[in-house]
């Protein structure tokens, strides 16, 4: 608490709202806990700070649900309007690459959970960084596979737009499917790229021994974000890759 600010006046409301003199248990300086270097000035203690940050991340994830939700709604509406076209278009995606990527992403969620756990239990910086970097490698693998899939679609002119080519029965519905495919997976991939960026920073912080049982909120909220991205894919995979399987795919 900075010196030099005037004391708040001792209130014109006797007995209703009292601004108490120093010595109350919420005054940082008289707090039993020593002042943690990571404690920001406007929080009372580390617990309040950590709770605020995780709650903030959860609220943010709610906005993310609604953000992707608009796309899922479009998918729902257009699939009810073009059921056959969606099956036909879906059958042209490689389920093997999709399933491989699903496994990769689930595995990365596991390593992320372990990264959070290693910070939470004050394990060595080597362990913390190991799990973070493993997660990043898995995330990069996912994106690499995505590049292969995208370039295959570009090669076959299956990208919506003036040059869209479709030799199946339902070119119009297939174009809508691929518009949604690219928007949904593209937005998902963008989230992964952002996640990799954040994790780079977190890994550096971990290497500098910033995280331990007392303070691991940044790793924790990065984990929340990463798991959310995983959840989006858990829905995208069956909805995009698998709906045309029995209809006859590769």
């Amino acid at each position: 608490m900075s010196d030099g600010y005037p004391q708040a006046p001792s209130v014109g409301l006797p007995g209703r709202v009292s601004i108490q003199a120093p010595g109350n248990p919420h005054d940082e300086q008289s707090s039993a806990h020593p002042h943690h270097p990571k404690l920001q000035h406007h929080f009372d203690d580390m617990g309040q700070q950590a709770e605020a940050s995780t709650l903030g991340m959860w609220v943010f994830l709610v906005t993310e649900i609604m953000f992707f939700g608009g796309l899922f709604l479009a998918y729902l509406v257009y699939r009810t309007q073009n059921p056959m076209a969606f099956q036909e278009a879906s059958a042209h995606l490689s389920w093997k690459l999709g399933a491989f990527n699903t496994a990769v992403l689930i595995f990365s969620s596991l390593t992320m959970a372990l990264a959070v756990r290693s910070a939470q239990t004050s394990e060595s910086r080597g362990t913390q960084v190991f799990w973070l970097v493993t997660t990043m490698i898995l995330g990069a693998t996912f994106l690499g596979v995505k590049v292969i899939e995208y370039s295959e679609k570009f090669a076959h002119n299956n990208v919506p737009g003036p040059n869209f080519v479709w030799d199946g029965q339902y070119p119009a519905g297939a174009e809508i499917f691929y518009s949604l495919y690219f928007c949904m997976t593209g937005l998902h991939a963008l989230h992964m790229v952002i996640g990799l960026g954040i994790m780079t920073v977190i890994a550096i912080m971990a290497w500098r021994r910033q995280f331990n049982t007392e303070y691991f909120t940044p790793v924790e909220i990065t984990g929340l974000y990463w798991h959310f991205v995983d959840i989006v894919w858990i829905f995208l995979f069956p909805l995009l890759y698998l709906i045309g399987r029995h209809y006859g795919g590769h």
Binding site: L55, V62, I65, M66, F72, L76, M112
Partner: peptide, 28 residues
Amino acid sequence: LYFMHVRWGTRLTWVVAASGFVWLLIMF
């Protein structure tokens, strides 16, 4: 529940996490 620790989270976390899905269902 497990990777994101909601299983051990506060009631507020449960409510916030659920509200996103509930609102999605409202929109749908």
